[in-house]
Simulated scan of single mutants.
Amino acid sequence: MAKEQGRKMVAQNKKARHDYAIEDTYEAGMVLQGTEVKSLRLGRASLVDGFVDIDRNEAWLHGVHIPEYSQGTWTNHAARRKRKLLLHREEIDKIERRVNEKGLTLVPLALYFVDGRAKVEIALAKGKKHWDKRATIAERTANREKEQALGRHLKGMRD
């Protein structure tokens, strides 16, 4: 069987980009069981309630839902178990310092395969207030209207 090449997206956490201001991102490997990998290859996962916790110098992914593999037997995995993340020691120490100093949180942004290996993109993020979310939406709308006006102008259409 040929080895997979490239990046295959499994799940994204779009709500995290809405609810948090992303400061820095990291790519981490995951320790998975066989049926979890098979379920992920079918494109089944949810990152909505997920978060990352650092406990005893190890990073753990909590709350990510990877459903049981439909053809699995008694060896099936628990859907919401905590999963160990694979990061370098320096990265874990740096992340832990920033979380403790600045009151940041770690949220998963995406779950994907890179050359056949499961990876998760985690982000150091700061929670947005309600008015921050409104400002982001207003800025996005203003940029969209500006692009549309520019496009109409270049085409010679009137506003």
Rank of each mutant, 00 (worst) to 15 (best):
G127Q: 13
A142N: 01
D132A: 05
Y112G: 06
F113S: 06
E121M: 11
R117A: 13
K129T: 14
L124C: 05
K128I: 03
K146Y: 11
K119T: 07
E121V: 08
I137K: 15
F113N: 08
D115K: 15
K128G: 01
E139I: 02
L150S: 06
L150P: 00
T136C: 13
K146N: 06
K133F: 03
I122L: 00
K129F: 12
W131V: 11
E121L: 12
K129E: 14
L111V: 05
T141Q: 11
Y112S: 05
E145I: 04
A135N: 09
N143F: 09
F113D: 05
A125P: 07
K146F: 13
H130Q: 12
V120Q: 01
T141W: 04
A138Q: 03
A149W: 08
A123C: 02
K133A: 08
D115C: 07
E147D: 12
K128C: 06
E145D: 11
E147R: 14
R144F: 07
D115I: 03
W131L: 13
D115A: 14
R144H: 06
A138S: 02
L150T: 08
V120E: 02
G116N: 07
T141F: 06
A125W: 03
F113T: 08
F113H: 06
A123K: 03
D132N: 15
R134W: 12
E145Q: 11
I137Y: 09
K146E: 11
R140G: 03
V120P: 02
R134S: 10
K129C: 02
R117C: 12
A149D: 09
A142S: 06
K126V: 08
I122Y: 00
N143L: 15
R144W: 03
A138M: 01
L124V: 04
A142Q: 06
Q148G: 04
H130P: 09
G116I: 13
K126N: 02
L124H: 08
K146M: 12
G116R: 06
E139L: 10
R140W: 02
R140P: 01
V114T: 13
K129H: 13
D115G: 04
K146D: 09
T141G: 02
K146G: 02
N143Y: 11
A118H: 06
I137Q: 12
L124G: 05
A118P: 14
T136P: 00
L150M: 10
H130N: 08
H130W: 11
Q148K: 12
R140E: 12
D132V: 08
V114A: 15
D115R: 13
R117Q: 15
F113K: 09
K119F: 06
E145A: 07
D132Y: 03
D115T: 09
V120S: 00
T141Y: 05
R134N: 05
G127L: 07
E147I: 09
A135K: 15
A142D: 01
G116W: 07
V120N: 04
L150N: 08
V114W: 10
I137A: 14
E139S: 11
A149H: 10
H130L: 12
L111H: 01
A125H: 05
K128T: 03
R140H: 11
R144P: 00
Q148R: 15
A118R: 04
E139V: 03
L150D: 07
A118F: 09
